[in-house]
Design a protein around this nucleic acid. Sequence first.
DNA 1: CGATTGACGTACG
DNA 2: TCGTACGCCAATC
Length: 128
Amino acid sequence: MCKEGINSQVQPVVVEDKSSFFERVFEVVRQVPYGRVTNYGAIAKFLGTGKSARLVGWAMNASHSAMPPVPAHRVVNRKGLLSGKMHFAYPEHMQELLEEEGIRVVNDQVADFKELLWDPLVEIGLED
DNA sequence: CGATTGACGTACG
DNA sequence: TCGTACGCCAATC
């Protein structure tokens, strides 16, 4: 009799742990303003992980499933190099997105990267 | 369960 | 400035 009705079937709710490192990375990246870029180390350090910048990159790997979408194209390495362009739909996609925002990319590297760099530790850190 | 890899960064020479 | 070595944590083999 424990046989419940059809509508009694339990549906596995796919709830992502917001406590996960990835979610935090997604949030920070989503805070990156238009026409600006950030680097993995800044995000990692902002989250308190510090040297685990690699995890940020790994988190971006899952960013394709993140909702809302994460502007991963605004995230580059500390050299301003489009290290993750290979993981986009196509390598040129990342550069196109950046140029679309007015960011000039030369030799797979962000021009004036230092000026366009948006550091959450500085921007958000002082705000919040 | 151990070894390897990875969209990185820092330290050292 | 450049190349090498190491750490970091999670996923994959």
